[in-house]
Simulated scan of single mutants.
Amino acid sequence: MSDRLPGWELRLAAAIDAARDQPFGWGVHDCAIWAFDLRRDLTGGDDVVALWRGRYRTARGAQRVMRRLGWSSLEAAGRDLLGDPLPSVHLAQRGDLVLADTGLGFGICLGARAAGIAPGKGPDDPGGLILVPMAACRLAWRV
């Protein structure tokens, strides 16, 4: 495990609580922004999200920004920013970053489940925090 700040568990719990009431928003409150901001808050690391925060407002815009940054996918972004993933997602621990193909995108391991931010499914669903089983995640990186 890399060096996490003292009290990281409380920071993780506070981030989950805060995300419960915040709707999804491309470029403001989406999977990558939330997960990488949380990684920064747990470790005191760099603000890599500054590369893309606020630079898009749609899924298509997010894809354009990723291409400009040299990433063909979320996986490519994860590998570039975080290095090689763990050999198995089953090795992920609470607070580690994960990548799922279930609409979650980037998220955070909470144990048996992962949390992340996903778009809603219609006009009455603004999206936001979702929980998925860790079995739905295909890659994980130690934080």
Rank of each mutant, 00 (worst) to 15 (best):
R55C: 04
G120M: 08
G107A: 08
A14Y: 09
G120T: 01
Y56P: 00
M134F: 08
R39P: 01
R55Y: 09
H29W: 10
R4H: 14
E75D: 14
R55N: 03
D3R: 10
S73I: 10
I16K: 03
W8P: 00
T43Y: 05
L51F: 09
R68M: 14
L104R: 11
Q93T: 05
T102Q: 05
F106M: 05
L51Q: 15
A100S: 11
V48E: 03
D37Y: 09
D101L: 13
D84K: 09
S2C: 09
A62M: 15
W8L: 05
I108T: 13
A77S: 10
R39W: 12
T43I: 02
A62F: 13
G70P: 11
T58K: 08
R40T: 00
P119W: 11
D46Y: 06
R60F: 14
L81F: 13
A140M: 03
D30M: 07
I108A: 11
G25P: 03
A19R: 02
A140F: 09
G25A: 15
L69H: 07
T102L: 07
V65P: 06
D125P: 00
A135Q: 14
Q22T: 04
L104Y: 13
H90D: 12
G61W: 11
V65C: 12
K121H: 14
D80F: 14
P123T: 03
Q63I: 12
D96Y: 06
R39T: 01
A118C: 09
I33N: 04
R138N: 05
F36W: 12
L10A: 14
I33G: 02
C137N: 10
L69K: 06
P119D: 05
A92L: 08
R142M: 06
G78L: 13
D17H: 09
M66P: 03
D41R: 13
V48Q: 01
L51K: 15
D47M: 07
W141P: 00
K121A: 07
A100Q: 02
S88A: 15
G44Y: 04
R11W: 08
V28S: 08
V89Y: 06
F24V: 01
D17I: 06
L82T: 02
R4V: 12
R113P: 01
A13P: 00
R55W: 10
R57S: 14
S2W: 11
A100V: 01
R39N: 06
R79V: 15
G54W: 14
L110C: 11
C137D: 07
T43S: 02
V132I: 13
P119A: 12
Y56N: 01
L99G: 04
L91R: 14
L91H: 11
K121R: 15
A59G: 15
R40H: 11
M134P: 01
G120R: 05
A115H: 11
G107C: 05
L81A: 10
